[in-house]
Design a protein around this nucleic acid. Structure first.
Lengths: 359, 359
DNA sequence: GTGAAAGCGCTAACAT
DNA sequence: ATGTTAGCGCTTTCAC
């Protein structure tokens, strides 16, 4: 049922290795007549190489393991897509495993991939120190894409949070704000720390003073943003703008502003961080700094591919810059605003724009 | 570097086949002493079977191809997760490929998977008639999970949209509404048609009359919902409730209601469909019917596994029921409301709840 | 219950 | 430029 090299050798009269040399696209010299003849027959009989056999021989599988926290986590799919798109260009596929941030599952995942035919591993939002010793057994490339951890790791790709926070603050200053409050993420989170640093640095660079009373702790969640904003509204000299370390807290802040009888952005401007989907459909549409997830994934895949194909050695941590998406919650002029995509789920959008579903 | 069966045979003094019988978990009878001895040595030296070699021999790879429209499409990740979770229970892995609903890419994907070591394929939101002939070459199981297409296909898993629409309507009737409007999806979409049927059937079952003037066309998008609701508000005898065929249109409807100086749910109740993430963070939180995506994926994986392991034959289309999530936009009593999860992204939630990130 | 022999389909080394 | 030989690591006959 499956066509093999032997059958093509039989038909064409050439030997199996010659057929292999043509069909495996090796750069081994083969007479062009021979080559063409073999190609034609292969095409005609619909030859498909047996990848298992090839892998067994070459110890290369053209597959990369992708260990993710959870494919349902909002930032994971775009990272994965970035990885997949780059891998595809080099005929690699991705094998995705969820670990639910559970060290036991992560260990299993690594074990599975060590046995499994993969040429490398990309860790997405997932790595426990417990498992790192296991990895030393894995003498193939592995890289990390993450945003959560504070550890500096070789071969990792992370967002440039300091830069991103600067974008937000600079934008607000440009709109005339001098009292810009900050709602931070929880203690001990790398991205919270970095965004906070970026906030402070940008204030200084703009000649503004850093005022501790304008900084509130948050919890990454809606509630935390709400409470933090309430506290900020209690300050005698209220801030005129709030920069929240993520979109969910920005949303909470907007609700708090509304519940206080004020309006965002008219009374208080709000900027979030992450560019989550809902920022585009909420009212007011939330101005935010994007987490460059797709590009982070792509870059991670680039690293693996380069290590695989060009023998690239360990690389220092790579920081990827996000960009500011100017929408309504900051009070910017309409002309400044970023033009967003359609408000349809991607499948529906694609189907509508490109073609019609099969009947 | 890689431990092989031969080495374990060498160490234990048994033959390679015997070692294989133990370590491949075959049910072939082996002396229990022998078995234990081999297991211990295998454990000690960290034996990992070479999957390529095993696959070459057995023609089984323990891998299932998952062809998706786009991993970024909002419904795809939960379907994929459902698939993965079930596959995992049987030690199968999933190889995910995006097609962007492009027939050419889909053809490539199928070809890739035919060569590749996969034991079956699951199509998620993706299937063009153009490719179906290709599939006949693929003499392994394949099943479909979808919500978009009207074609009735063997071995497919779909949401029960008629039932779901009934849930929404019945709920509104239970809250005392008699004039329930409906905002439909665009013409030609299976789920739109089915939800519309469910709407009509439920009205009749409740002894209410179906009134065409209460039905408005929509486009699945925010704008369509907004316009449709505006039209509904222009009717002399306004509806007291609006059921929108998806959440985005429900959101548009709520905005239209607000812009007309009214309130949802106080003046007009609104129910959506799909249970998209944003329905939980919006104000008012949107009551909606869930698309049972996770379970659809799980069921699809079950089908494949059963076909693979138990030789299950072709199955008729399987309909999966969603459930009603009662929130604020319908005006239900607080005591009736569904208790939702935390408002944190899943990674953050998991990290916060379970453990701390590695430092 | 265990071992000897064979071979899955492919590519790499070595001839010619 | 092509063919011969060998073998990747594993499982499956078939003997005993």
């Amino acid at each position: 049922m499956q066509v093999t090299l032997a059958e093509i050798a039989e038909i064409t009269g050439f030997s199996v290795p010659t057929v292999s040399r043509v069909l495996s696209k090796s750069d081994y010299p083969v007479n062009s007549h021979t080559r063409q003849q073999i190609m034609e027959v292969a095409e005609a009989v619909g030859y498909k190489p047996n990848i298992s056999a090839r892998s067994l021989r070459t110890d290369r599988t053209h597959t990369v393991g992708i260990i993710v926290d959870d494919i349902l986590s909002p930032f994971v799919p775009p990272i994965v897509r970035g990885i997949q798109d780059h891998l595809k260009d080099f005929d690699y596929l991705g094998l995705i495993i969820n670990t639910d941030f559970n060290p036991v599952l992560e260990k299993d995942a690594i074990n599975t991939l060590i046995n499994r035919p993969v040429d490398g591993i990309i860790f997405v939002e997932s790595l426990h120190s417990a498992t790192s010793e296991l990895l030393t057994q894995f003498n193939k490339p592995y890289v990390f894409v993450h945003r959560l951890f504070s550890s500096f790791v070789k071969n990792s790709v992370v967002p440039d949070d300091r830069y991103g926070a600067g974008l937000a603050v600079n934008h607000l200053v440009g709109l005339g704000h001098h009292r810009i409050a900050y709602i931070n993420g929880p203690e001990g989170w790398h991205s919270a720390t970095r965004r906070f640093m970026g906030y402070q640095e940008a204030l200084l660079a703009q000649g503004l003073e850093f005022e501790p009373e304008l900084v509130q702790p948050g919890d990454w969640g809606f509630e935390g943003g709400y409470n933090a904003a309430q506290n900020l509204l209690d300050i005698a000299e209220k801030p005129t703008a709030i920069f929240a370390a993520n979109d969910l807290m920005a949303l909470g802040a907007i609700y708090a502003i509304q519940d206080a009888g004020l309006t965002a952005p008219d009374d208080i401007a709000v900027v979030g961080y992450d560019n989550q989907e809902f920022t585009r459909i909420f009212r007011p549409k939330i101005t935010t700094v994007s987490l460059p997830v797709y590009e982070m994934g792509k870059t991670a895949a680039e690293l693996v591919i380069k290590q695989l194909r060009e023998g690239l050695q360990n690389t220092d941590e790579i920081k990827i810059k996000g960009q500011l998406f100017i929408r309504e919650s900051c009070g910017a002029d309409k002309s400044q605003m970023t033009i967003d995509e359609l408000d349809l789920g991607t499948t529906a959008r694609r189907v509508v724009l490109n073609m019609h579903p099969t009947e």
